[in-house]
Design a protein around this nucleic acid. Structure first.
Lengths: 111, 111
DNA sequence: ACGGTATATATCATTACAGTTATATTGTCG
DNA sequence: CGACAATATAACTGTAATGATATATACCGT
């Protein structure tokens, strides 16, 4: 179990699945139909990878399984990439401002 | 060439290399020595993957090759993950803590 | 040019992964 | 119960990624 989040994100189909889930939760079959080039078991496996990475959660309603996003792991990825934000401009400042705290944040990282 | 950024980020060693490069540029050998469990050619290949993904650039000085971060692709990843930022709107605490403390990294934080 | 250092490529074995077909599980309905 | 729908797992296949050893290329000092 315990699957790596970054590895889960490495597959373009899985990233597209996550994109679809930003709108609303979706049943497994609905997601499968959104990718006609992939078989039903294939999609089921992708969903399992996303599940084991903690990127999605499932809610079972009758014979349907509804997938939706889980924020925690996505936030981890965001936290990781945020370390590099100082390298492409001043976006960090706006983020800093957004974080009201202004407790210091990672400054002085400009080359 | 054109290699997928997310696939390049899927490997933990390569992510650690990027982490090292946030501080300053480093020679290939310096990076290799930071990972004793990986052979010199192994590190060279990791660096190639990062290069082909556009995540790093190389500057050659004498017999040394100095690797440093390239912001463009990292910014792409950041743009992608930003689509999900609305999903943990008020739960930005983890990110805040990450930028703030930097001592107790937010990675490995089980929820 | 020679020997040493720094780094990359070639080749090969092993492993991981995406995709397929077939089958199993679980739930619904008549 | 029997048939069907929704989803997951099993077994297999081809491909790509990883890591190691050996070798090649490039640069430096003497």
């Amino acid at each position: 179990m315990e699957r790596d989040v970054f590895s889960a994100l490495a597959d373009p189909t899985r990233r597209q699945v996550l994109d679809l889930l930003t709108r609303r939760e979706r049943a497994a079959g609905e997601l499968g139909r959104a990718f006609p080039q992939i078989s039903q078991p294939g999609m089921s496996r992708h969903l399992r990878v996303l599940r084991e990475a903690g990127l999605v959660q499932v809610r079972q309603d009758r014979q349907h399984r509804y997938y939706s996003l889980r924020s925690e792991r996505l936030a981890e990825v965001d936290a990781w990439i945020s370390k590099y934000r100082g390298f492409w401009g001043t976006e960090l400042d706006s983020l800093e401002a957004y974080l009201d705290g202004s407790k210091k944040a990672a400054r002085g990282k400009r080359t």
